[in-house]
Design a protein around this nucleic acid. Structure first.
Lengths: 184, 184
DNA sequence: CCGGATAACTTAACATGTTAAACAAATTTC
DNA sequence: GAAATTTGTTTAACATGTTAAGTTATCCGG
Protein backbone atom coordinates (compact mmCIF):
# COMPACT_ATOMS: atom_id res chain seq x y z
CA UNK A 1 0.00 0.00 0.00
CA UNK A 2 1.10 3.47 0.66
CA UNK A 3 1.01 4.19 -3.00
CA UNK A 4 1.14 7.61 -4.49
CA UNK A 5 -1.64 10.10 -4.19
CA UNK A 6 -4.85 9.59 -5.97
CA UNK A 7 -4.18 12.17 -8.59
CA UNK A 8 -7.74 12.37 -9.72
CA UNK A 9 -7.97 14.87 -12.48
CA UNK A 10 -9.54 17.62 -10.41
CA UNK A 11 -8.51 21.12 -11.01
CA UNK A 12 -8.49 24.50 -9.50
CA UNK A 13 -10.73 24.51 -6.41
CA UNK A 14 -12.28 27.40 -4.53
CA UNK A 15 -13.66 29.52 -7.25
CA UNK A 16 -13.90 32.50 -4.95
CA UNK A 17 -10.22 33.23 -5.16
CA UNK A 18 -9.17 35.52 -7.91
CA UNK A 19 -5.43 35.34 -7.42
CA UNK A 20 -2.94 34.50 -10.01
CA UNK A 21 -1.40 31.13 -9.53
CA UNK A 22 1.52 32.41 -7.48
CA UNK A 23 3.14 30.03 -5.03
CA UNK A 24 1.54 29.70 -1.66
CA UNK A 25 4.44 31.41 0.09
CA UNK A 26 4.08 34.40 -2.14
CA UNK A 27 1.08 35.85 -0.36
CA UNK A 28 0.57 34.75 3.18
CA UNK A 29 -1.45 37.64 4.30
CA UNK A 30 -4.26 36.16 6.40
CA UNK A 31 -2.11 33.15 7.27
CA UNK A 32 -0.16 35.19 9.73
CA UNK A 33 -3.36 36.10 11.45
CA UNK A 34 -4.15 32.46 11.98
CA UNK A 35 -0.66 31.57 13.07
CA UNK A 36 -0.79 34.28 15.71
CA UNK A 37 -4.05 33.27 17.27
CA UNK A 38 -4.01 32.78 21.01
CA UNK A 39 -4.61 29.02 20.94
CA UNK A 40 -1.77 28.55 18.48
CA UNK A 41 0.56 30.74 20.50
CA UNK A 42 -0.18 28.76 23.63
CA UNK A 43 0.19 25.47 21.81
CA UNK A 44 3.54 26.36 20.29
CA UNK A 45 4.88 27.74 23.53
CA UNK A 46 3.90 24.67 25.45
CA UNK A 47 5.36 22.40 22.85
CA UNK A 48 8.63 24.33 22.93
CA UNK A 49 8.77 23.68 26.65
CA UNK A 50 7.72 20.04 26.63
CA UNK A 51 10.13 19.28 23.85
CA UNK A 52 12.87 19.76 26.41
CA UNK A 53 11.45 17.32 28.91
CA UNK A 54 10.12 14.49 26.81
CA UNK A 55 13.41 12.78 25.92
CA UNK A 56 14.48 12.55 29.53
CA UNK A 57 11.11 11.20 30.64
CA UNK A 58 11.15 8.77 27.78
CA UNK A 59 14.52 7.44 28.84
CA UNK A 60 12.92 6.52 32.12
CA UNK A 61 9.92 4.91 30.47
CA UNK A 62 7.49 7.65 31.37
CA UNK A 63 5.14 9.75 29.33
CA UNK A 64 4.36 13.30 30.22
CA UNK A 65 1.03 12.37 31.77
CA UNK A 66 2.42 9.47 33.75
CA UNK A 67 5.04 11.83 35.12
CA UNK A 68 2.37 14.36 36.05
CA UNK A 69 0.50 11.73 38.00
CA UNK A 70 3.51 10.41 39.88
CA UNK A 71 4.65 13.94 40.54
CA UNK A 72 1.27 14.83 41.99
CA UNK A 73 1.30 11.72 44.14
CA UNK A 74 4.59 12.63 45.78
CA UNK A 75 2.92 15.65 47.29
CA UNK A 76 0.28 13.72 49.17
CA UNK A 77 -0.07 10.62 51.22
CA UNK A 78 -3.08 9.31 49.37
CA UNK A 79 -5.53 10.99 47.06
CA UNK A 80 -8.84 10.10 45.53
CA UNK A 81 -9.08 9.53 41.81
CA UNK A 82 -11.28 12.54 41.17
CA UNK A 83 -8.99 14.83 43.10
CA UNK A 84 -6.01 13.41 41.26
CA UNK A 85 -7.69 14.13 37.94
CA UNK A 86 -8.15 17.70 39.05
CA UNK A 87 -4.58 18.37 40.13
CA UNK A 88 -2.91 16.44 37.31
CA UNK A 89 -5.34 18.07 34.88
CA UNK A 90 -6.42 14.85 33.21
CA UNK A 91 -9.86 13.71 32.18
CA UNK A 92 -11.33 10.77 34.02
CA UNK A 93 -11.03 8.23 31.22
CA UNK A 94 -7.38 9.09 30.56
CA UNK A 95 -6.57 8.88 34.23
CA UNK A 96 -8.37 5.58 34.56
CA UNK A 97 -6.29 4.00 31.82
CA UNK A 98 -3.03 5.40 33.06
CA UNK A 99 -3.67 4.30 36.64
CA UNK A 100 -4.35 0.79 35.41
CA UNK A 101 -0.97 0.82 33.67
CA UNK A 102 0.94 2.40 36.55
CA UNK A 103 -0.57 -0.10 38.96
CA UNK A 104 0.43 -2.99 36.72
CA UNK A 105 3.97 -1.61 36.77
CA UNK A 106 3.85 -1.36 40.57
CA UNK A 107 4.53 2.36 40.49
CA UNK A 108 1.38 3.15 42.42
CA UNK A 109 -0.96 1.42 44.84
CA UNK A 110 -4.65 1.81 45.24
CA UNK A 111 -7.50 0.58 47.35
CA UNK A 112 -11.13 1.35 47.82
CA UNK A 113 -12.09 3.95 50.39
CA UNK A 114 -13.51 2.40 53.55
CA UNK A 115 -16.31 4.86 53.85
CA UNK A 116 -17.34 4.89 50.19
CA UNK A 117 -16.52 1.88 48.09
CA UNK A 118 -17.00 3.81 44.88
CA UNK A 119 -13.97 5.96 45.56
CA UNK A 120 -10.46 4.80 44.85
CA UNK A 121 -7.57 5.97 46.96
CA UNK A 122 -4.28 6.17 45.16
CA UNK A 123 -0.75 6.50 46.49
CA UNK A 124 2.72 6.23 45.07
CA UNK A 125 4.70 3.06 45.77
CA UNK A 126 8.28 2.98 46.92
CA UNK A 127 9.24 1.86 43.45
CA UNK A 128 7.42 4.84 42.01
CA UNK A 129 9.15 7.10 44.46
CA UNK A 130 12.52 5.77 43.42
CA UNK A 131 11.67 6.42 39.80
CA UNK A 132 10.69 9.98 40.61
CA UNK A 133 13.93 10.50 42.41
CA UNK A 134 15.83 9.19 39.42
CA UNK A 135 14.12 11.58 37.01
CA UNK A 136 13.85 14.65 39.17
CA UNK A 137 17.45 15.92 38.93
CA UNK A 138 17.36 16.09 35.15
CA UNK A 139 13.92 17.64 35.13
CA UNK A 140 14.96 20.26 37.59
CA UNK A 141 18.09 21.02 35.62
CA UNK A 142 16.04 21.50 32.47
CA UNK A 143 13.58 23.69 34.30
CA UNK A 144 16.43 25.76 35.66
CA UNK A 145 17.89 26.15 32.19
CA UNK A 146 14.55 27.29 30.83
CA UNK A 147 14.22 29.77 33.67
CA UNK A 148 17.70 31.04 33.00
CA UNK A 149 17.18 31.44 29.27
CA UNK A 150 13.84 33.16 29.48
CA UNK A 151 14.52 35.04 32.67
CA UNK A 152 13.11 34.31 36.11
CA UNK A 153 11.39 37.66 36.28
CA UNK A 154 9.66 37.26 32.96
CA UNK A 155 8.76 33.69 33.73
CA UNK A 156 6.92 34.73 36.85
CA UNK A 157 5.22 37.50 34.94
CA UNK A 158 4.17 35.09 32.21
CA UNK A 159 2.69 32.69 34.70
CA UNK A 160 0.80 35.49 36.35
CA UNK A 161 -0.72 36.42 33.02
CA UNK A 162 -1.61 32.83 32.26
CA UNK A 163 -3.35 32.54 35.59
CA UNK A 164 -5.19 35.74 34.94
CA UNK A 165 -6.27 34.53 31.53
CA UNK A 166 -7.63 31.40 33.13
CA UNK A 167 -9.60 33.38 35.66
CA UNK A 168 -10.90 35.69 32.96
CA UNK A 169 -12.41 32.79 31.09
CA UNK A 170 -13.50 30.71 34.03
CA UNK A 171 -16.88 32.37 34.24
CA UNK A 172 -17.38 32.71 30.51
CA UNK A 173 -20.43 30.96 29.19
CA UNK A 174 -19.72 28.30 26.63
CA UNK A 175 -21.61 29.04 23.44
CA UNK A 176 -23.28 26.59 21.14
CA UNK A 177 -24.06 23.93 23.67
CA UNK A 178 -27.37 22.92 22.18
CA UNK A 179 -27.24 22.35 18.46
CA UNK A 180 -26.60 25.25 16.18
CA UNK A 181 -25.43 28.35 17.92
CA UNK A 182 -26.97 30.86 15.58
CA UNK A 183 -30.61 30.04 16.14
CA UNK A 184 -32.59 26.89 16.34
CA UNK B 1 -10.16 -2.72 41.97
CA UNK B 2 -6.73 -3.11 43.50
CA UNK B 3 -6.84 -5.13 46.63
CA UNK B 4 -5.36 -4.06 49.94
CA UNK B 5 -1.66 -3.48 49.70
CA UNK B 6 1.23 -2.98 51.96
CA UNK B 7 1.16 0.76 52.19
CA UNK B 8 4.53 1.08 53.82
CA UNK B 9 5.29 4.03 56.01
CA UNK B 10 4.54 7.57 55.02
CA UNK B 11 6.86 8.63 52.33
CA UNK B 12 6.20 12.28 52.52
CA UNK B 13 9.17 13.74 50.64
CA UNK B 14 9.32 16.82 52.76
CA UNK B 15 9.32 14.94 55.97
CA UNK B 16 7.50 17.58 57.94
CA UNK B 17 4.08 16.16 57.28
CA UNK B 18 2.47 14.26 60.07
CA UNK B 19 -1.18 14.50 59.18
CA UNK B 20 -3.76 11.98 59.99
CA UNK B 21 -5.63 10.73 57.03
CA UNK B 22 -7.45 13.99 56.47
CA UNK B 23 -8.82 14.62 53.02
CA UNK B 24 -6.32 15.51 50.38
CA UNK B 25 -7.74 19.01 50.10
CA UNK B 26 -6.86 19.63 53.70
CA UNK B 27 -3.15 20.12 53.12
CA UNK B 28 -1.99 20.96 49.66
CA UNK B 29 1.39 22.35 50.44
CA UNK B 30 3.91 21.10 47.86
CA UNK B 31 1.12 20.32 45.45
CA UNK B 32 0.90 23.96 44.60
CA UNK B 33 4.48 23.92 43.44
CA UNK B 34 3.69 21.27 40.89
CA UNK B 35 0.47 22.89 39.87
CA UNK B 36 2.33 26.11 39.12
CA UNK B 37 4.91 24.65 36.80
CA UNK B 38 5.21 26.31 33.43
CA UNK B 39 3.93 23.36 31.41
CA UNK B 40 0.87 23.07 33.63
CA UNK B 41 0.20 26.80 33.44
CA UNK B 42 0.36 26.71 29.67
CA UNK B 43 -1.80 23.62 29.51
CA UNK B 44 -4.50 25.03 31.74
CA UNK B 45 -4.51 28.37 29.98
CA UNK B 46 -4.84 26.76 26.59
CA UNK B 47 -7.57 24.48 27.79
CA UNK B 48 -9.47 27.44 29.23
CA UNK B 49 -9.35 29.05 25.80
CA UNK B 50 -10.19 25.98 23.74
CA UNK B 51 -13.05 25.12 26.01
CA UNK B 52 -14.81 28.12 24.53
CA UNK B 53 -14.37 27.05 20.94
CA UNK B 54 -14.89 23.31 21.02
CA UNK B 55 -18.69 23.20 21.36
CA UNK B 56 -19.19 25.45 18.36
CA UNK B 57 -16.77 23.48 16.23
CA UNK B 58 -18.36 20.28 17.35
CA UNK B 59 -21.75 21.52 16.25
CA UNK B 60 -20.32 21.83 12.78
CA UNK B 61 -18.75 18.40 12.87
CA UNK B 62 -15.20 19.65 13.21
CA UNK B 63 -12.47 18.92 15.68
CA UNK B 64 -9.97 21.53 16.69
CA UNK B 65 -7.30 20.11 14.40
CA UNK B 66 -9.58 19.79 11.42
CA UNK B 67 -10.53 23.40 11.90
CA UNK B 68 -6.88 24.43 12.07
CA UNK B 69 -6.23 22.71 8.77
CA UNK B 70 -9.20 24.20 6.95
CA UNK B 71 -8.42 27.58 8.44
CA UNK B 72 -4.86 27.39 7.18
CA UNK B 73 -6.05 26.33 3.75
CA UNK B 74 -8.27 29.38 3.35
CA UNK B 75 -5.16 31.54 3.42
CA UNK B 76 -3.50 29.92 0.43
CA UNK B 77 -4.39 28.63 -2.96
CA UNK B 78 -2.63 25.32 -2.53
CA UNK B 79 -0.05 24.15 -0.06
CA UNK B 80 2.20 21.14 0.27
CA UNK B 81 1.59 18.66 3.04
CA UNK B 82 4.84 19.40 4.85
CA UNK B 83 4.21 23.13 4.77
CA UNK B 84 0.69 22.55 5.99
CA UNK B 85 1.99 20.50 8.88
CA UNK B 86 4.24 23.39 9.80
CA UNK B 87 1.63 26.13 9.76
CA UNK B 88 -1.15 24.06 11.35
CA UNK B 89 1.39 22.77 13.89
CA UNK B 90 0.55 19.10 13.43
CA UNK B 91 2.83 16.11 13.18
CA UNK B 92 2.98 14.31 9.88
CA UNK B 93 1.10 11.20 10.93
CA UNK B 94 -1.76 13.17 12.47
CA UNK B 95 -2.02 15.36 9.41
CA UNK B 96 -1.96 12.37 7.12
CA UNK B 97 -4.91 10.78 8.88
CA UNK B 98 -6.90 13.97 9.06
CA UNK B 99 -6.34 14.79 5.39
CA UNK B 100 -7.59 11.34 4.47
CA UNK B 101 -10.75 12.04 6.42
CA UNK B 102 -11.25 15.57 5.12
CA UNK B 103 -10.76 14.38 1.58
CA UNK B 104 -13.33 11.64 2.07
CA UNK B 105 -15.75 14.31 3.26
CA UNK B 106 -14.95 16.43 0.21
CA UNK B 107 -13.81 19.33 2.33
CA UNK B 108 -10.41 19.42 0.67
CA UNK B 109 -8.83 18.33 -2.59
CA UNK B 110 -5.37 17.10 -3.27
CA UNK B 111 -3.16 16.02 -6.09
CA UNK B 112 0.44 15.15 -6.61
CA UNK B 113 2.88 17.89 -7.51
CA UNK B 114 3.90 17.84 -11.14
CA UNK B 115 7.55 18.47 -10.49
CA UNK B 116 7.90 16.06 -7.55
CA UNK B 117 5.49 13.18 -7.33
CA UNK B 118 6.32 12.61 -3.68
CA UNK B 119 4.76 15.88 -2.68
CA UNK B 120 1.05 16.31 -2.22
CA UNK B 121 -0.62 19.61 -2.92
CA UNK B 122 -3.67 20.34 -0.84
CA UNK B 123 -6.38 22.93 -1.26
CA UNK B 124 -9.73 23.63 0.28
CA UNK B 125 -12.85 22.73 -1.69
CA UNK B 126 -15.83 24.97 -2.17
CA UNK B 127 -17.70 22.80 0.29
CA UNK B 128 -14.92 23.27 2.80
CA UNK B 129 -14.97 26.97 2.19
CA UNK B 130 -18.68 27.08 2.87
CA UNK B 131 -18.16 25.24 6.11
CA UNK B 132 -15.49 27.69 7.18
CA UNK B 133 -17.78 30.57 6.41
CA UNK B 134 -20.49 28.98 8.52
CA UNK B 135 -18.23 28.56 11.53
CA UNK B 136 -16.20 31.74 11.30
CA UNK B 137 -18.74 34.22 12.71
CA UNK B 138 -19.16 32.30 15.94
CA UNK B 139 -15.43 31.73 16.29
CA UNK B 140 -14.71 35.37 15.77
CA UNK B 141 -17.36 36.37 18.27
CA UNK B 142 -15.81 34.05 20.85
CA UNK B 143 -12.36 35.39 20.13
CA UNK B 144 -13.64 38.92 20.50
CA UNK B 145 -15.23 38.07 23.81
CA UNK B 146 -12.00 36.55 25.07
CA UNK B 147 -10.09 39.62 23.96
CA UNK B 148 -12.60 41.83 25.71
CA UNK B 149 -12.51 39.88 28.96
CA UNK B 150 -8.77 39.59 29.19
CA UNK B 151 -7.97 42.94 27.64
CA UNK B 152 -6.59 43.59 24.17
CA UNK B 153 -3.46 45.20 25.56
CA UNK B 154 -2.67 42.32 27.86
CA UNK B 155 -3.49 39.81 25.19
CA UNK B 156 -0.92 41.31 22.85
CA UNK B 157 1.58 41.42 25.67
CA UNK B 158 0.92 37.78 26.51
CA UNK B 159 1.43 36.71 22.94
CA UNK B 160 4.66 38.64 22.77
CA UNK B 161 5.91 36.80 25.80
CA UNK B 162 4.86 33.45 24.42
CA UNK B 163 6.73 34.17 21.22
CA UNK B 164 9.76 35.20 23.18
CA UNK B 165 9.60 32.03 25.24
CA UNK B 166 9.51 30.04 22.03
CA UNK B 167 12.53 31.82 20.68
CA UNK B 168 14.38 31.40 23.96
CA UNK B 169 14.02 27.65 23.77
CA UNK B 170 14.39 27.23 20.03
CA UNK B 171 18.15 26.91 20.25
CA UNK B 172 18.19 24.91 23.46
CA UNK B 173 19.78 21.52 23.17
CA UNK B 174 17.51 18.66 24.00
CA UNK B 175 19.03 16.57 26.75
CA UNK B 176 18.97 12.82 27.07
CA UNK B 177 18.71 11.99 23.41
CA UNK B 178 20.86 8.89 23.49
CA UNK B 179 20.04 6.60 26.37
CA UNK B 180 20.75 7.84 29.83
CA UNK B 181 21.11 11.56 30.08
CA UNK B 182 23.78 11.55 32.71
CA UNK B 183 26.60 10.36 30.50
CA UNK B 184 26.87 8.37 27.35
C1' DC C 1 -36.78 -1.35 53.24
C1' DC C 2 -37.17 -0.28 48.26
C1' DG C 3 -36.73 1.64 43.93
C1' DG C 4 -35.31 5.70 41.49
C1' DA C 5 -31.82 9.34 41.27
C1' DT C 6 -27.03 10.55 41.87
C1' DA C 7 -22.03 9.91 42.22
C1' DA C 8 -17.53 7.89 41.23
C1' DC C 9 -15.37 5.52 38.38
C1' DT C 10 -14.62 2.54 34.26
C1' DT C 11 -15.35 1.04 29.29
C1' DA C 12 -16.17 1.97 24.76
C1' DA C 13 -15.37 4.29 20.53
C1' DC C 14 -13.30 7.44 17.78
C1' DA C 15 -9.69 11.24 16.93
C1' DT C 16 -5.13 12.91 17.76
C1' DG C 17 -0.13 12.81 19.79
C1' DT C 18 4.13 10.49 19.34
C1' DT C 19 7.79 7.59 17.76
C1' DA C 20 9.42 4.09 14.61
C1' DA C 21 9.20 1.84 10.36
C1' DA C 22 7.72 1.32 5.59
C1' DC C 23 7.53 3.13 0.83
C1' DA C 24 8.07 5.39 -3.27
C1' DA C 25 10.13 9.21 -5.75
C1' DA C 26 14.13 12.09 -6.10
C1' DT C 27 19.03 12.93 -5.45
C1' DT C 28 23.66 11.71 -4.83
C1' DT C 29 27.64 8.50 -5.43
C1' DC C 30 30.57 5.66 -7.49
C1' DG D 1 23.42 5.07 -14.89
C1' DA D 2 22.46 1.53 -11.23
C1' DA D 3 23.12 1.31 -6.26
C1' DA D 4 22.99 3.82 -2.09
C1' DT D 5 21.14 7.62 0.30
C1' DT D 6 17.91 11.12 1.20
C1' DT D 7 13.31 13.22 1.16
C1' DG D 8 8.13 13.48 1.42
C1' DT D 9 4.48 11.06 2.94
C1' DT D 10 1.99 7.29 4.83
C1' DT D 11 1.29 3.12 8.04
C1' DA D 12 1.78 0.96 12.24
C1' DA D 13 1.53 0.71 17.14
C1' DC D 14 0.73 2.43 21.38
C1' DA D 15 -0.74 6.37 24.63
C1' DT D 16 -3.81 10.11 25.48
C1' DG D 17 -7.94 13.50 24.51
C1' DT D 18 -12.80 13.60 24.28
C1' DT D 19 -17.60 12.41 24.62
C1' DA D 20 -21.08 8.92 25.59
C1' DA D 21 -22.61 4.93 27.81
C1' DG D 22 -22.10 1.36 31.34
C1' DT D 23 -21.29 -0.32 36.40
C1' DT D 24 -21.45 -0.36 41.00
C1' DA D 25 -22.18 1.98 45.28
C1' DT D 26 -24.70 5.85 47.94
C1' DC D 27 -28.28 8.62 48.78
C1' DC D 28 -33.05 9.81 49.20
C1' DG D 29 -37.96 10.06 49.16
C1' DG D 30 -41.90 7.27 50.10
Amino acid sequence: MGGPLKMSGKKSPNGSRSDQEGTAEARRGPMREFSRSLPMSLLRAREAVMRQFRPSLRNHGLTEQQWRILRALTAVDTIEVTELARVAFLLGPSLSRILRDLEARDLIERRAAKADLRRGEVSISSKGLKLIEAVAPTSEAIYAEITHRFGARKLAELQDMLGELERSLAAMEVAGEGEAEADE
